[in-house]
Design a protein around this nucleic acid. Sequence first.
DNA 1: CAGCATGACTCTGTATACAGAACCGAAGAG
DNA 2: CTCTTCGGTTCTGTATACAGAGTCATGCTG
Lengths: 225, 225
Amino acid sequence: MLASDRAYEALRDDILNWRIAPGTALSETELAVRLGISRTPLRAALARLALEGLVDTSRGRTGVVPDISVESIAQQFEVREALELQAARLAARRRDPAVFQELAESFAHATETLAEGGTEAYYAVVARFDAAMEDAVGNPAMRSALESVRIHLFRARRLAQDNPERLLRAAAEHRLICEAVRDGDGELAASATAVHLHGSLTTITDTLHDRTELADRTTHGTEGT
Amino acid sequence: MLASDRAYEALRDDILNWRIAPGTALSETELAVRLGISRTPLRAALARLALEGLVDTSRGRTGVVPDISVESIAQQFEVREALELQAARLAARRRDPAVFQELAESFAHATETLAEGGTEAYYAVVARFDAAMEDAVGNPAMRSALESVRIHLFRARRLAQDNPERLLRAAAEHRLICEAVRDGDGELAASATAVHLHGSLTTITDTLHDRTELADRTTHGTEGT
DNA sequence: CAGCATGACTCTGTATACAGAACCGAAGAG
DNA sequence: CTCTTCGGTTCTGTATACAGAGTCATGCTG
């Protein structure tokens, strides 16, 4: 594999999993030494991340990892809603019913999945769902647009401690989407997707509010205790 | 300005205006010599174009300018429809009425604009419209998503010889969108946008069909005449 | 004459060297 | 004590050199 690709994946993984704190300056020389490559392929990786929005180069020449705000997440969701609803409508038109029948059953067994494999196992089913939707739509442009917005979302999801209750509700929402797509009911699929996204955004927003308050307390409030 | 940025803009301009034929291999060394820079900043420019989809690196290491097909345009429009309809709804919610009132009047005078300034003057108004929509939405993520899909579209539009009748109809469609946004009627704005996109896609598709037939004739059909 | 192998050439991917600019710290003036 | 300025340091942006892989042509063999 190319050194630039390895650097890209390594950095992307670090950013998505919050191993690099927001605001951290991404020094090219330092990162190149750390990853054991020269600056040339590393620059390519940084440029790619910057174009995807995972590195902010707007202020100053040196890139920094952007922070996540309630506002930025809400904006991402406005884009995501547009794309996912359209994808749901198109998928309902072009789907293979058997695929979404199987997925609907998987989501119906979410309780067991969570009990046996935990949140990871559940998210694996969600990943299969996302892939099935993209396949059903069969539109490379739509796929890359969805992946672009999902990258940012993945970062926010890593932050949100999904409680089992929320995940079970999300599973029920996903199940309904699958059934609607299976039946070719595009409008229901779109509506169910809107419902799901609303719940998802609410969960993330609540988590971010908690996180912001916590950060404010540790920053300013210590002298008050 | 940075050499890599100049290279990016120069190449982008060449690709968008069909000065580089689809399928042309983009040799790094050759382009670097032509633009008077070294390969390092040129590679950055090529990588950026590849990520935006203006250069295809999928088959082979060396990038080529992708061709435009009816299918690829239809796929781009599926994404564009999702984004523009959402943008229209959001813009109607957050707009400054005066801005869209002024734009509606500009589109009402499209006949004079076309007579005096030609298609260029008309497209300048459309550019103002696009910018006003993005400003009204006030969502950087939506803006970049829209710009991404509009880049591809710009290339197709360069191909379509817009006849005055189509442009006048498009102006009427734009005018309705502006009035709906001005009045805060998101659903009407979305519907009017859908109508406009349908007309736009139809025009481009027809042009592409003509172009394909022409290419087929010049390639295979000469022995028949 | 056709198919294959071999060799040269070109191209990409990577490393390194260098120049210019920005930033940080310290020292001096007000 | 604070502000400004100057020097050093570090960083990015660019150019160039080099190695490996792929490709094309040519010559040889069957």
